[in-house]
Every structure is written in structure tokens, then in C-alpha cells.
Nucleic acid binder design. Sequence first.
DNA 1: CCTACCGATCGGTAGG
DNA 2: CCTACCGATCGGTAGG
Lengths: 212, 212
Amino acid sequence: MDTEGLSKGEQTRREIIAAAHTLFVKQGYHGTSMREIAKTAGLALGGIYNHFATKEDIFRAVFVEYHPINYIFPALAQAHGESTEALLRDIARHIIAGLKEDPDFINLLSIDIVEFQGSNASSVLRTRLPALEGVYRQIVSASSNDLRPIPPLIFLRSFFGLFISYFMTGYILNLAPELPDEINQNAFDYFIEIFLHGVLSDTGTHRGGKNL
Amino acid sequence: MDTEGLSKGEQTRREIIAAAHTLFVKQGYHGTSMREIAKTAGLALGGIYNHFATKEDIFRAVFVEYHPINYIFPALAQAHGESTEALLRDIARHIIAGLKEDPDFINLLSIDIVEFQGSNASSVLRTRLPALEGVYRQIVSASSNDLRPIPPLIFLRSFFGLFISYFMTGYILNLAPELPDEINQNAFDYFIEIFLHGVLSDTGTHRGGKNL
DNA sequence: CCTACCGATCGGTAGG
DNA sequence: CCTACCGATCGGTAGG
């Protein structure tokens, strides 16, 4: 985490967030004590309360700081492609790359559901959905509109659900190493291929994706 | 829960499981005390330990007892359809009906990930995957094989991922009631439509699904 | 199946 | 009056 040019207080705050993230992901929310967070961050228990009023506040900060949306938006900005298909493929590739680098968000999301009934996920969604809708409009207008008629919000829900599906099933499957490797081999390539074939109209001559 | 013809001990055991399920789903794992479970099940704290050695044992029993696979298999058995498409559509309809009746499994799955690193989900998968592969073979052989060439395990992963995607996104979206209703309107119809269009080859004349 | 109780640890706060 | 933090301890609760 970049700590240059930050006040001492802000530095400590970031160390608390980083420590809490590591521990929450590994041990869960109630499985992580304020004492552990303090120790890992390099200060005494009481010191935490100069930066966060409650443990819940810490989780909120961790959830927002490590939310995939932070790298999804930059990824969307630099994605490009001539056809709708190529664009979606490139966006997916960027998002997958980001998620593979930080696959622990599944744990944070699970904590949010178990302990906070998903209120943090919902809050982030509320904040960012308008921008995501903008991205959708960009996608359909950037190329000849060869998407099947799917309501924009359903399209977005389905597209992001694809990543949830891939990472949730992958998380569980990776715990069963005796399973045939077939289940992981190029799995996301197939996932995105199924999705693209599912949302693109099959009338055009634009299909540039590799065949299955 | 059906308690006829059960021994007193087995009855109590089931009451503990039912009480624990209700509380775990509402309050999480560490948020639920053994005392609460005991009280809800109608016995004293110490009494629980005549039926379960640890709190983890109770969670394992709850997870297995309320796992969707319990109604997915019967649903698969009674599903029917002339084409691959019709069959998949009918299976999905049955599974969705079951999940809508008991949407709280998301919470159990989240607890499993947070507290047990997904080991219970993985264990159920290990036990049931062979039977699911059998179902897949049944699907491809029951009708003219009009599926695109997707490895069987990837197909299964993608198919069940569809339900995870739908219910996870739905869980979070339903917390934001101010969002346009478009995002929920017939959402699963679109989800299954995208999936089917994605996995079925588009060469045949078999497509009987409604157009989007 | 209960009453009574354990070693330990919880999130949060006190004065300085 | 600010910040960052200490050693010690608060009232309650955890699984067993």
C-alpha cells in the first residue's frame, strides 16, 4: 500500500485496514479479535479506537478498500475492441486478471452476507450502479448493436454474475484436488464463450471468437 | 419437519438442527450461541451435548440437511423434455422453484466459506458429483445431441454456477429497493435464456424457446 | 437432560 | 487543544 505523503495518522489507519483485511479473510469476522488486528498493525488495542469507533467500521473500510469495483472501473476504461464481442471479451479478460490477483474478495462478500446481511455489498452497488449503466450504454453504442434484446440491468446483472459464478464454484472446487483437472482447464474461456454466445445475436457475420 | 416414528432422542436432535438452522441463517455462526440454540430447541445448554459433540458438528448437520442437492436430485428425476433445450429448461425451472422456497442456503454457504473455508460445500460436492455426471450423460443421450462441444464438468459447473449467480446477485439487489424493478422482472427467464442460447448449437432447427 | 461452573477471551473504554 | 498511543481494566459472553 502506498504510504508516501500521508500523515502519520492516515498511515496508521491504512495499516489497520491492511491488517484487518488479512485477518478477516483468513479467520472470518468474529474469528478475528480487535487485539489481533492491533497487534498485526503494530499498535496497542486502545490505539485502534483513535481511528475507528467500532469493529464494524473497520470491516466497512476493508470492504470498500478491497472491493473489485476499484479495479473494474480502470479495467473498463482501458478495454477496447472493434466488435461488441471483442469488447466484452477484453473487459472480461481485464476483470478476471484483477480478480485472480485478489481472489479473497469472496471471503469479504461472504462475511458481509453472514454478519451484515449484505448491506455493504448493497451500498457499494447503490453508489456505483449509475456508472456501470453508463458503461453498458458505451458498449452498445461503441459497435454495431449485435446484442440480443436484453434489458440493460439484466445484462449487467448477468455479466457480473458470471464472475461470481466462476469464482464461487472455483473456490469450492479447488478444495477437492482429487477432481479431474478438466473442471478447471480453461474454465473461464468456456464461461465467457457460453455467455457471449448467449447474449450475441447469431444473425450477424461479426462472430470473431474462437469456436468451442 | 416430520417427527413421526422417531425416537425421542432423534426428535430432539432434529429440533436442535431446525433451531440452529433458523438462528445461523439470521445471526451467523459466531453470532449464534449454544445457549440460544438450546433455548430455541427447548432444552438446557448442557443437553445439546448429548446429541452433538461440538458447535461445528451442529453446523455440519444443518448444512447437509438443508443443502439444495436434497431437492435438486428429485427435481432432476421428474424433469422431462423432448429436446435438450426443453429438458434443461424444465430442470432449471424445478431447481429455481426449490431454491425460491428455501433461499437461505446462501447464508449457510457463506458461513461455510467464512468459518470453514468452504469445506462442507466441498465435501457435499465430492459425494454427489458422480451422480451429477450421470445426470449430464442422461441429458446428452436423451435427445439429439445439440449441445456445443463443452467438457461435461465445465458444463455442470457453468449450469450450477448459473443459480449461484442468480441468487447471489438477487440477494444483494433485493437490499436496494430503490433500484428500478427492471433488474428483477423475469430475471431468471433471461438468465436461463442466455445460458441455453450459449450452450446450444445454433445450427439445428430444434430451437423451441421463446425469443427474447 | 440439567445445574453449576471453568479458563479464556470478547469488544470497547478509562485516565494520563 | 491536537495526534497517537499506553497499561490496565470494564461488563458480558464464548465453548465446553
